[in-house]
């Protein structure tokens, strides 16, 4: 009972603080509001689980998850290396690299652009994750098959965005390059690739979340005895939900860091773009 009352009080306090803070326009307030919201959410979760006595088999409390996180950090680190560093990151680099090279080739030949782009758009909307069982069958159970799934998943979003970006320069800008007597490669390198960067980074950001999902889901179809997907699916069977949630925390942290890293590189590389200025 005490926990429920405490949860209600904290919720009211957080709401009150946020209403007050959101009227200010400082950058500290802009940071504090979502942080308070998140803290209140975690506390209310804890209070609800304890107050209503929800079984840890259904929903473990945040404190239990945190304890588990500390206890099994070795296992979690192993899984992180197997899934994120070996599977997702390798596949991400290979897939995005291949997509960018393909985009340049496609952009060079108009026939390919008109033919490949509708097909690429179509494929980008498909449930690509479905090829995971096939690729696991081809490349074996270890991280190579996970990287292959990630390659296929990230390829089309990046390709479509990059091709769109490479076409984004105006006729005036291209004419200017021609008056400078710039050849194809010079104008690609100095004008069209930089102009395409905002689009490319858009694709890279979409791909960063897809990569993690692909690597984890591919492990459901067979994996060695490490890996986040493996741990999640076996721990659910053993009803060790605290370990599952600890893996989810790792996945969320890794996903946020991955996305944030790409966003940081974007800010450094496209500092001149209107969407990055004036903040």
């Amino acid at each position: 009972m005490i926990w429920i009352v405490a949860g209600l009080i904290v919720w009211a306090l957080g709401l009150w603080a946020n209403v007050r803070l959101s009227k200010r326009k400082t950058s500290a307030a802009a940071l504090a509001v979502p942080v308070i919201f998140g803290l209140v959410l975690v506390f209310v979760w804890e209070a609800v689980v304890r107050g209503f006595g929800i079984s840890p088999v259904l929903l473990p409390a945040p404190s239990v998850i945190a304890a588990r996180f500390g206890q099994s950090s070795g296992v979690l680190w192993q899984d992180f290396v197997q899934t994120v560093l070996k599977g997702a990151l390798t596949g991400y680099v290979l897939g995005c690299g291949a997509a960018l090279l393909t985009a340049i080739v496609v952009d060079r030949f108009d026939f390919l652009r008109r033919g490949l782009l509708p097909v690429g758009n179509f494929v980008a909307a498909l449930p690509i994750i479905g090829i995971a069982p096939i690729l696991v069958m081809w490349f074996g159970f270890d991280w190579q098959s996970k990287a292959a799934v990630v390659v296929v998943m990230v390829f089309f979003p990046v390709l479509v965005n990059a091709v769109q970006g490479l076409a984004d320069t105006s006729a005036m800008q291209r004419d200017l390059m021609r008056t400078y007597a710039a050849g194809y490669w010079t104008s690609l390198w100095k004008l069209r690739l930089p102009a395409a960067l905002p689009f490319i980074f858009n694709g890279l950001k979409i791909a960063s979340t897809l990569a993690l999902i692909g690597a984890i889901v591919a492990e459901f179809f067979g994996s060695p005895i490490t890996g986040m997907g493996f741990r999640i699916s076996t721990s659910v069977g053993l009803l060790q939900l605290d370990l599952v949630w600890a893996e989810i925390v790792v996945a969320a942290l890794a996903g946020s860091a991955f996305y944030g890293g790409v966003a940081l590189i974007e800010r450094a590389a496209t500092f001149w773009h209107p969407s990055q200025r004036g903040r």
């Binding site: 984890i216 889901v217 986040m228 599952v244 946020s256 996305y259």
Partner: peptide
Amino acid sequence: TIPILAIAP
């Protein structure tokens, strides 16, 4: 950023 597909099971 939480890979919901991964925790679907």
